[in-house]
């Protein structure tokens, strides 16, 4: 009997330890930042987010993240399709490479893009000659965002394509559907949930990205300063209130997206 009692004590201890760890590590900081943002009152909060540089940074981030997500949708869907449906030499290698951006430190990714697009590089010279700039301008930010979010769409679409029953497709052919029609009416709807949730994850990650972007963006306030870099600048210049306000804005946005992703996945499971 005493061993049983001991077992209960142990499990009670484990439970509380894990729950406390979870609460302190994840929940408390997030509550803290929301609390902090309103600690100086609503008007201060409003003042901080209506600061032109702040909302310009947020606006720019959203705009570029959307562009990155759209490109990811196109390229990611195509890549997922190629990697699952076609057999060709090097397929396994490409498939392994997909995860590289997850494994690579974002600061390293930033440095890579910096080197590739820099003025001495081939791309830099070429762009210079034709009179437009990539590095320290919006295109570089979008490229950085695409790089770090590259795996999301592919990894979300692949399993759907894999588990897709080929008999559905065959049924469409036997019913006289053309290849294009079958793709649009049968395969596409099957991939859509993956594309949607992958794109939303990519979008939310792009919103949050810092390391890869900070090195290539140039960070010119109002022009190429994105939200997370703006927040970093505010912290560096000891303006915690400004940093907090923009953070809360960005966080709320990301939470909504996260919730949407969950919702899409739940609905998929429900069907």
């Amino acid at each position: 009997m005493s061993s049983m009692l001991q077992g209960r004590w142990w499990s009670w201890g484990f439970r509380s330890a894990v729950m406390i760890y979870f609460m302190v590590l994840i929940v408390l900081p997030i509550l803290g930042i929301y609390g902090q943002s309103l600690s100086a009152g609503w008007s201060a909060f409003i003042d901080n987010i209506t600061e032109p540089l702040a909302w310009k940074a947020v606006f720019l981030t959203v705009k570029l993240a959307i562009i990155a997500a759209v490109i990811n949708i196109l390229v990611g869907t195509m890549s997922a399709w190629v990697l699952i449906r076609y057999r060709f030499p090097g397929r396994r290698l490409l498939n392994s490479l997909v995860d590289l951006p997850f494994a690579l430190p974002t600061a390293v990714a930033g440095l890579m893009i910096l080197l590739l697009l820099g003025p001495q590089s081939f791309v830099g010279e070429w762009a210079d000659k034709f009179g437009f700039a990539i590095l320290f301008h919006e295109p570089a930010i979008v490229i950085a965002m695409i790089f770090v979010t590259f795996p999301f769409v592919i990894r979300a679409v692949q399993p759907l394509l894999e588990e897709m029953d080929s008999s559905e497709e065959e049924a469409a052919y036997t019913l006289g559907a053309t290849k294009a029609r079958t793709f649009l009416r049968v395969i596409m709807p099957g991939m859509l949930p993956g594309i949607a949730s992958g794109a939303m994850l990519a979008f939310s990650r792009a919103l949050a990205e810092f390391g890869a972007v900070v090195l290539v963006a140039g960070n010119i306030p109002g022009k190429t300063l994105i939200a997370s870099v703006y927040i970093f600048g505010e912290i560096e210049s000891d303006n915690a209130a400004g940093a907090t306000a923009v953070s809360v804005l960005l966080l709320t946005f990301s939470f909504i997206i996260l919730w949407l992703v969950n919702y899409v996945q739940m609905r998929r499971k429900g069907v």
Binding site: I30, R205, I235, L251
Partner: peptide
């Protein structure tokens, strides 16, 4: 996942 690392640090 949804929190920018910078914001995580700020917290």
């Amino acid at each position: 996942f949804a929190v920018s690392p910078v914001i995580g640090g700020l917290m």
